[in-house]
Simulated scan of single mutants.
Amino acid sequence: MTQNILLAPKAGFCMGVSLALKKLDKAILDNPNCKIYTLGPIIHNPQVLKQYEQKGVKIGDDKTHFQPGDIVLIRAHGIPFGLEQNLKQKQIKIIDATCPKVKKAQLLIQEQSKKRVLLLYGEKNHPEVKGLLSYAQNQIILFESLQELLNLQLNSNLEYVLAAQTTQDQNEFYQIQDYLKRQNISFIALNTICNATEERQKEAIELAKKVDFMIVVGGKISGNTRRLAKVVSKYAPYLHIETSLELDLNELSKYSTIGITAGASTPQEIIDEVILKLKK
């Protein structure tokens, strides 16, 4: 029987996700007769996306033929620079819900890559990364891990600017900087990892050290949730779930203390359902 359930303080929606969803909710309320699109999934959580689909919100992309009067919301991950410029030329209403931390990263990369090669630590197929890369003004080198960077040939005669996807592993980002210094690579490092991401990962690690088992709640396609699972896996056995339906209570009953953390795109009601099921 589970004796104790501990929840990480910062589990659930981050500031950027909350802002994006508030903007979408307001657009739905204020424009009952308009077609509303998000450019790609507004956040990486299937349950939230289903709720908005039921409200009539459609998911569009760069190939969607928007009609005059349509409302198009730029999601929290941001979009490529060229796509945003193309949208502004159409007779549609654009609502920019890009996370402020992502927008800051885009602008920093745009400014600092003018005379430097961009080294970007991020997931190749992630929508935020595609947007960040579009702001680069020079050559680009994209890598997903320190291990991948070790296999790349960098030119010690060039100037580099190092940046990261906002939800990347902060500790690995520090390790990357240490490696570049040891290789005598000339670079400047941009502070683009969201502090909320760093704090959430630290909390998850500290919690994992105290418990017998960790549960990570959030979308399987959510990059920041997958990284939470990765960091806690070093300290405790864990399970990454999207909803409480995936819990095996018989299996979990052998653990006396269970810790719970959740990704930045995980709604509070899903976290509450997990806790309630464990308590039952």
Rank of each mutant, 00 (worst) to 15 (best):
Q3A: 12
N4P: 11
I5G: 05
I5Q: 04
A8E: 03
K10D: 15
K10W: 08
L19F: 11
A20I: 04
K26H: 15
A27Y: 06
L29V: 07
D30L: 12
L39Y: 10
Q47W: 12
G56K: 09
G56Q: 10
V57M: 08
K58Q: 14
I59T: 15
H65F: 15
P68N: 06
V72S: 04
L73G: 08
L73M: 11
A76D: 06
G78K: 02
L83I: 11
Q85H: 10
N86Q: 15
N86K: 13
K90C: 14
Q91N: 08
K101Y: 14
K101E: 12
V102F: 01
K103S: 13
Q106K: 10
K115M: 11
G122D: 01
K130N: 08
G131R: 00
L132D: 04
Y135A: 06
L142R: 00
F143P: 00
S145C: 03
L146D: 03
N151S: 14
N151G: 11
Q153N: 14
S156K: 10
N157D: 12
N157P: 03
A164M: 02
Q168W: 06
D169W: 05
E172N: 03
Y174G: 09
Y174K: 13
Q175D: 11
L180H: 07
Q183T: 15
I185P: 01
I185R: 01
S186I: 09
I188N: 11
A189V: 04
N191Q: 06
E199T: 14
D212Q: 13
M214D: 07
V216K: 00
V217N: 01
G218D: 04
G218P: 10
G219Q: 07
G223A: 14
R226M: 10
K230W: 12
V231K: 01
V231G: 05
V232T: 09
V232P: 02
V232F: 02
P237V: 10
I241T: 06
E242N: 13
L245D: 15
K254W: 08
T257C: 12
I260E: 11
T261D: 08
A262E: 09
Q268F: 10
D272N: 13
V274M: 01
I275H: 03
L276Y: 15
